[in-house]
Write a protein that binds this DNA or RNA. Structure first.
Lengths: 139, 139
DNA sequence: ATGGGTGCAAAGGATTTGCAACATT
DNA sequence: AATGTTGCAAATCCTTTGCACCCAT
């Protein structure tokens, strides 16, 4: 859990001016374990900020992604969601309840991909789909 | 390389009537190593079939995905593409030239995800991004 | 006062849907 | 004839863009 001051510092280091809206959006995505969509971020912060537009949320999230501060998940292209968790992890999306869960994984998993040494890897995402423990037991 | 007759058989087994359009679309996606979008499938088959609409391509691809005959890739949610390769493989998308390449991987890579034994996995996709060998050397 | 940030309204683009014509059995 | 398939046109949804206003430096 980073403090507001630390998050602000992180924005500045990335060359991004820490406006009220930006800091709030950054904090929300970083602290959330819920992989929010732009819409969800908007709904969550609308009251808190008094003034906020969906446009700003979209623009700001794009800004953060381009700066490498958060990542955009495309586990399901019917909706786009964002992830502030900076550790190496896989994503599991439950086909039944729709929940997206983070799963830890060993760092050297890329060694299992053949011929990858001739490539230069910037980003790796492992997306899993199926039933989560809760939904699995219900069936 | 499957024959037309084998592909037709596969559709029937999945409970899908093998119309001319469906068989052509199925064959194209299965034989292509190019991960086509709906648009690309449409352009490629338009002449061959004489009559074909984008709507049919969209509906048919969805039908195949739901039946588990092909898979939908969401490596980049600015465009949706399809994959007829049924072997276990990872996808690498080059940030520079945009090409998407299949990479073989060892089957037991899921053992590197912690706590996965309590889940039921139906689908796993590993998406890699960076520079392909050709683009890497150019820089 | 100047440059960037915000937000409204409108545009954009990919995909889906309604429905009528058509094909195949 | 009946059922399922196709395809045009229109609708839909999410996201981006144009532009004017506003804030902070």
């Amino acid at each position: 859990m980073a403090t507001r001051a630390e998050l602000r510092e992180e924005l500045v280091k990335a060359g991004i001016r820490p406006s009220v809206q930006r800091l709030a959006i950054f904090e929300y995505v970083r602290q959330s374990c819920q992989h929010p969509t732009a819409e969800v971020v908007y709904e969550a912060l609308c009251d808190e900020l008094g003034s906020l537009s969906l446009t700003t949320v979209y623009n700001t999230l794009k800004l953060f992604v381009d700066a490498g501060l958060i990542s955009m998940l495309t586990i399901d292209d019917t909706f786009r969601c964002f992830d502030g968790n900076r550790c190496c992890h896989a994503h599991f999306r439950c086909d039944n309840c729709g929940k997206i869960v983070d799963l830890q994984m060993k760092k050297d998993f890329l060694s299992l991909v053949e011929g990858l040494d001739t490539y230069s890897v910037n980003d790796a995402q492992l997306y899993l789909k199926g039933l989560c423990p809760a939904c699995k037991n219900k069936k």
